[in-house]
Design a protein around this nucleic acid. Structure first.
Length: 474
RNA sequence: GGUCCCGUCGUCUAACGGUUAGGACACCAGGUUCUCAUCCUGGCAAUAGGAGUUCGAUUCUCCUCGGGAUCACCA
């Protein structure tokens, strides 16, 4: 069997972590099986469609490296890959069902159906349209909905993730296949498309699980063998009480890319949200995922989205890069004043912050003092536990002595370290006092890389200049 | 409400029916000549509850409770 999986989003909004995980797993299954991964846009609801989101979806997949073999912008043998361009195909299959007596025209208005529904709710019974099925429906002319003439029965089926599932006949109903606007419903369209496109595995979110028995009924009516099904549990928001959604503050996946999260880190994090290989491995490269992923080990319960863990994973990837690699990735994230700095200088700066960078967008905050003189902030000294106790005169004295000593340094890290040690002896001060004072004087920021590294990279002229400014300000 | 799925540290998770219930994130404490970070060491912290099967249950069964999904001319 040729493995063919698909990602079939509707272009009605931005893609977040939950949606992309379904795509990732489908992609992994396709690549593992040497098969194809297909992108299909399910744009059958013109009202809900949001312009531009189709492109956004494609951009997200590309950003994460989830390349698809067939899709709206990629030719394939089973196109087109937009449902709105396949209406004649659905019509053909619908006619087949009409001909075989398994579909009929819905004679009621939406209001009438709604009245049935409310009646059922009042008597605390589940609403079933088939209880109102007309005896002699008119011939379907496309101006009314087309409904499945269902055959209620119990179903048992296997889900690659959820295991064996069984339901009773009560969940089977005459669901709508074609809407009165000529578009198919999702329920019908995806079955037709998956068959036409020879999809082998349907990998999708939990929201569809309850509808599977109805789908099985359609598959039978159409005489199609259902594909393998795998249902992904939802990713929940950080409170664990709701499925992740944009409205709940779930970030658009592109936002993470823009903030400088690595695609590989996002992939690893998303994959391990509800999946693990059974060992204690916490971070996976895409290559490793291709070797180790399996639907059978996907968790059945929903996982919460915890951004702190993503932060850790991302930092992990950043630290594992070579300086040159990192330098390349970080190019567009430098602070404005770094524009005129040399490559060599920027690389030196980058080396000092590589281990404290969690995502690229932090770079300006972490490094700006290397590129411009920040305004003196007296609070930094005042609020320091040790320095706050000293008088301005004492501080001045310490800085002056330090300046004199550092003026003789060649500003190599080695020499700086030696001279800083010697200064500790000369002034009889603890590092917590002297080094803090120097660090604050030079960076004017609450936290920064180590002192000798910072001095060395910043250089003799700038360093002494800043110490001088601090002395004058006291 | 009906139906379906799920329930191990705060979070992500591991544990052929036999483990002092393990790891990771987060958090806390200590160390790495200063801060932040990294790294190292240590700490906190869980089988939702109750029956049953069994010599023995996180694991199997049932009930209760809790959470989620779904019940649209949305997907």
């Amino acid at each position: 069997m040729t493995v063919r999986t698909r990602f079939a989003p509707s272009p009605t909004g931005l893609l977040h972590v939950g949606g992309i995980r379904t795509a990732l797993f489908a992609w992994l299954v396709a690549r593992q099986g040497n098969g194809q991964f297909i992108l299909r846009l399910e744009d059958t609801d013109q009202k809900r469609e949001v312009k531009g989101t189709d492109q956004h979806i494609m951009d997200c997949l590309m950003a994460l490296g989830l390349e698809y073999d067939e899709g709206p912008d990629k030719k394939g043998p089973h196109g087109p890959y937009r449902q709105s361009q396949r209406l004649d195909i659905y019509k053909k299959w619908a006619d087949k069902l009409v001909a075989s007596g398994r579909a009929y025209a819905d004679p009621y208005t939406a209001e009438e159906v709604q009245a049935f529904r409310e009646l059922a709710q009042k008597s605390k019974k589940p609403f079933l349209y088939r209880n109102h099925r007309p005896e002699n429906p008119a011939k379907w002319d496309g101006s009314t909905p087309l409904r499945l003439k269902s055959e209620p029965k119990a179903y048992k089926w296997h889900d690659e993730v959820m295991g064996d599932i069984s339901t009773g006949p009560a969940v089977i109903d005459d669901i709508i296949l074609m809407k009165s606007d000529g578009f198919p419903t999702y329920n019908f369209a995806h079955i037709v498309d998956d068959a036409e496109m020879q999809i082998s595995h349907i990998i999708r979110g939990q929201e569809f699980l309850a509808s599977v028995p109805n789908y099985l009924n359609i598959y039978e009516a159409l005489d199609i063998n259902p594909p393998i099904m795998a249902t992904m549990p939802h990713i929940l928001n950080e409170h664990g009480n709701k499925k992740l959604s944009k409205r709940d503050g779930a970030k658009d996946l592109m936002d993470y890319i823009k903030e400088g999260y690595l695609p590989e880190a996002l992939v690893s994090f998303i994959a391990t949200l509800g999946w693990n290989d059974g060992t204690t491995q916490e971070v996976f490269s895409t290559k490793e995922l291709l070797q180790k992923f399996s639907l059978a080990k996907v968790q059945r319960s929903g996982a919460r989205f915890d951004e702190r863990r993503l932060l850790w994973v991302n930092g992990n990837f950043i630290r594992s890069m070579s300086l040159d690699q990192l330098y390349e990735k970080v190019e567009s994230f430098w602070p404005e004043p770094a524009k005129n700095a040399t490559t060599i200088y920027k690389k030196q700066v980058l080396a000092t912050v590589q281990e404290r960078l969690k995502y690229y967008a932090e770079l300006p905050e972490l490094t700006q003092f290397f590129f411009l003189d920040l305004p003196l902030d007296p609070q930094l000294i005042k609020q320091n536990k040790q320095l706050g106790k000293l008088s301005n005169e004492e501080l001045k004295k310490l800085l002056t002595v330090s300046k004199t000593e550092l003026e003789q340094s060649d500003f190599s890290t080695k020499d700086l370290t030696d001279r800083l040690n010697s200064l500790l002896n000369q002034t009889n001060q603890k590092p917590a006092v002297l080094f803090s004072l120097l660090r604050i004087s030079i960076t004017q920021t609450p936290s920064s890389p180590g002192l000798s590294d910072t001095l060395s990279v910043l250089g003799k002229v700038k360093s002494l200049e800043r110490i001088e400014s601090q002395i004058n300000a006291l």
